[in-house]
């Protein structure tokens, strides 16, 4: 009974989270702002305010930062690229992907249920957390904050501009502001190489495959940085009229008749094959033309400057889908 209720609450929480992540004002950033922000960020040299973290909590950043605990893979990657790998003393499980740059014995934590005692015993100067950790409204790092440690929260950003600000924030906090501007320029320059190759192709993005094993169909709508990524490529998200990260019905996904299907599902052996074999989807254009592609899940789901690399990847796939279906038509 308790389990049942817990599951329902979780389901309801997931739903509200999905609903409230939608920020309508984030949709503004389209290809023009992407182009103009390249100049904007070059001009904007004033350091961001570091008296509050990215979630708006007041923080006091120590003068010297020698020990960093990073509990989000996107942050860990930025820190490493800022040249701070040797200062990282603790990471979350997912950050273990970057273990080759770190001390092999580095303590790893569960970002949802961190071992605050062990984190405190590392005596970090700063702890970077991600908004993920406080899903459900309870900040699991409160004990650390109360013990006087500097806990800087960086909630998952929903726009490319916010991602730029995240990178600059990490740079400013760690005394590597100039280096962080380089990362932002890398992002802008990479994005600038992508042109609108999508031709308005209708794209369905599957973050889960709606089959027997994982019954729901998760995707995204507007107000997400992934929507901006599709905008840059000039492709159309079939669920652009929705807001945020959403679960939609198979009926609507099929009725939308996407030209291309992209998926980040990396927990099955052959995600593309599984999607091509979905029952009832046989007549969807993307399935008929076999325009179904796996995209690097880590690249696009860890919001930092490498989002730009993901845009390049997506653009390549969507372009090739366009040309192959043209060939077939001809």
């Amino acid at each position: 009974m308790k389990k049942k209720i817990a599951t329902l609450i979780l389901a309801a929480a997931m739903l509200t989270c999905a609903a409230c992540t939608a920020k309508p004002d984030d949709t503004k950033a389209t290809e023009e702002s992407a182009a103009s922000s390249a100049e904007a960020s070059a001009i904007e040299t004033s350091m961001p305010d570091i008296s509050t973290d990215r979630a708006g909590n007041a923080i006091e950043v120590p003068e010297n930062i020698d020990k960093i605990v990073s509990l989000a893979p996107s942050t860990t990657e930025v820190l490493i690229e800022l040249g701070l790998a040797d200062k990282i003393v603790g990471i979350d499980y997912y950050s273990a992907d970057y273990l080759e740059y770190l001390d092999a014995d580095i303590p790893q934590f569960d970002m949802m249920e961190p071992d605050c005692e062990l984190i405190a015993s590392l005596d970090p100067d700063i702890v970077f957390t991600s908004g993920m950790s406080s899903v459900g409204g309870v900040n699991p790092f409160l004990p650390l904050v109360e013990a006087g440690y500097c806990v800087a929260d960086i909630p998952s950003s929903e726009s490319l501009d916010a991602i730029r600000d995240d990178i600059k924030f990490i740079g400013a906090v760690t005394g590597k502001y100039d280096e962080s501007l380089d990362l932002v320029s890398y992002m802008d320059e990479t994005l600038a190489t992508v042109s609108e190759v999508g031709n308005g192709a209708k794209v369905l993005f599957l973050m889960s495959i709606p089959d027997a094993n994982y019954p729901s169909l998760y995707t995204f709508g507007s107000g997400t940085y992934m929507q901006e990524m599709l905008d840059i490529i000039g492709a159309t998200n079939v669920f652009a009229d929705q807001e945020g990260w959403i679960s939609v019905s198979s009926e609507d996904a099929i009725a939308a008749d996407p030209d291309v299907i992209l998926t980040t599902v990396n927990w099955v052996e052959d995600p593309v094959g599984d999607i091509l074999a979905l029952e009832g989807w046989e007549n969807v254009t993307a399935i008929k033309n076999a325009a179904v592609y796996y995209v690097d899940a880590n690249l696009c789901s860890r919001p930092n400057e490498h989002i730009a690399d993901a845009v390049v990847e997506w653009a390549g796939l969507i372009t090739s889908a366009g040309t192959s279906s043209d060939n077939e038509a001809a």
């Binding site: 329902l8 739903l15 609507d252």
Partner: peptide, 10 residues
Amino acid sequence: LSPREIPVGA
């Protein structure tokens, strides 16, 4: 909430 789905358990 179409096209969104609410978990049927909810």
